[in-house]
Design a protein around this nucleic acid. Structure first.
Lengths: 206, 206, 206, 206
DNA sequence: GATGAATGAGAGTTCATTCAT
DNA sequence: AATGAATGAACTCTCATTCAT
């Protein structure tokens, strides 16, 4: 089908590449059509392989979801780390970093729809739900750390546990990004930014 | 299959009953398994009919979604109206009404998962998306009115447009209800209540 | 595909016809290629239907085997009854009837191969094995009754329990019929007849 | 996978070992599941190798069947030779040897099921059928020689050509062994012994 | 000689949908 | 209006087989 010329790749590297391509194609397909409606055939074809290649890399379609979850988590984690790194010791710089995150993330409908599919599937499938809960807890912690730092720089007391605030932000980001795909425009991104701002502007500095 | 004794029903009433039963069964099936994975056969059987009855009432499986949306909206609307009616002129009574809504809605996983399915489908299907957007805008307005009333009774200025706050609450409610199905416990319901409270406690009365 | 014009058939009759046609086609396919290699696709097509029709009539491919077993048993039973009816009260007429059975049955490779497939499957699958054992016991009894009658008419004492002799005859008939397909010629049919004769000629009449 | 330590084996010995192991594993798998349902992957894995090893030793799955046939024949031949060697010049010793064969062979379901698979395949595939017929003729001759010797020692005239009697015995042995797997117990082995005995007890000694 | 990732074909099964009853 | 047998297409998954390593 596609070229996939392995040129100078070892077997392991080559399979790793195949797996990565399949996962990427799957992210897109699942986001676009939903897990149940995204067929293994389409995923494999979109990645440039045949169905057999899929089953050489995943033991079942269900099994793929765990990798989708991991991939999704890593991608989001890189966003958070970027925001945290950019935060520095200056409150307004840190807030800007968070807002940059909100603006970009609040518009990435693909990630948001994938995340929502994963959320639903987690509630439907106990085994998957467990893995999901573990990974999401990690994410929440990372966001919460960022919020804690921000409140500290702002000299404010968080109006609620930062873990809870982080969870709310993640939820809103996800949902607003879908709204963005639904309504178009930039309202969604802005709404998230405004929500964040209201968190820190409510109470004035010490 | 089941009795459905039409004895004292006119033809029209009888069909209306069939349709209602099918929609109710569909709500459950779609929430439980997702739209794509909920088969027409299963939905019809769960309602006590066969596939033919389904196609006598809906022109296609896709067509069913519009009715699911309507049914979902009506159900949620009755919750809002209940909260508004209970609000009265007393701030703390009104807040309690809203919190009661949060507690009950924040734990109804079936409604929440159905709502999420509809949200996703709306983003994927333009025609459905339009109907979805219209109905959701109505809902948001109703919640916003309730919030406006509350802020007014509290003598506070809303920290953001109440329409936006209403949208955020709806989103959080939906997501937390799914978390409730996922993690169990009562944390989800409480988290929503706490979020609502923080809205009104942040800024002191005029 | 094919005509299947239901003309004046009730729904039940029509489905019964479909089922019968599928079973007949399946007998042939399974005999020709073996159970595992006979695909549902091919069976349905050979009967003039699509795969879906197959699954409207059988819950699975495995499930089909039970009907194949029943069909096979009925077909064989009619042969036995024919031989018994033809037996009458005259020893040589009865022997001739049995030999007629041997000659015809010893050459029906399709039935023999199907029977062998069923035998193998019974040994591999406990649930099917149980049903198989029950039906085969019935068949053996019928043949044994015929043998008992013959020995009685001949005034001989059976050299072994007639149930056992019946089982041996059935086994030989099955195997020789396959040999017939394998080697061709008429040796197989004759061998069975000779074996039967030797049963009754060994010991002279009282 | 497994060790297969080739240390002290020449290349050829090593490959011979691989081939032997594959054939043995295949015998078991084919007997257990049938030829069509026994996958190359499973056979190779059961032998401690991967598919590649299989295709280094056999040109196709079909090709394997010829080796299975040969292996089966050798195994059975060793049984016959054992019985012949043990026969000696004493009738009752010879009969005991044959009965020993019956008892052991009549209970080896694996061999019997493999033999039946081969029989069926021979009737379905002309090329394989030819090889099968040749090998089976040899086997039959060996058994017939044993029977001839026995009748001679017993001073009896065989009630039918010994070649035919030998064929019947082989068929019964095969079928009864499968019945043994099907019903359990020891009836199958005993039934074969009784059949053999009746062959020699029918007509009294000279 | 042996590996195992990948292919391409085809397996069993389920589905939304139709239509004679 | 409701039934459910049948269709035809699509599904997930497994297979025998190949070939670069």
């Amino acid at each position: 089908m596609t070229d996939h010329s392995p040129q100078r790749l070892t077997r392991e590297e080559s399979q790793e590449q195949t797996r990565r391509r399949l996962i990427e194609a799957a992210c897109k397909q699942v986001a676009e059509r939903g897990f149940a409606a995204a067929s293994v055939r389409d995923i494999a074809r979109a990645a440039g392989y045949t169905q057999g290649a899929f089953y050489s890399n995943f033991s079942s379609k269900e099994d793929l979801l765990l990798d989708l979850l991991r991939q999704h988590k890593e991608q989001e984690a890189s966003h958070i780390l970027g925001a945290i790194d950019a935060a520095g010791d200056d409150f307004s710089a840190a807030l800007q970093a968070l807002e940059r995150w909100a603006r970009s993330f609040g518009m990435d409908a693909e990630q948001a729809m994938l995340a929502t599919e994963l959320h639903l599937h987690a509630a439907r499938n106990a085994a998957f739900g467990k893995a999901y809960a573990a990974l999401m807890a990690e994410q929440r912690k990372a966001y919460a750390a960022l919020l804690t730092r921000l409140f500290s720089l702002a000299g404010q007391t968080p109006p609620a546990p930062t873990l809870e605030l982080a969870g709310n932000l993640m939820t809103l980001a996800r949902s607003l990004a879908i709204d963005h795909a639904l309504y178009g425009g930039t309202a969604a991104g802005k709404a998230l930014v405004r929500t964040i701002r209201s968190l820190f502007s409510a109470a004035p500095v010490r």
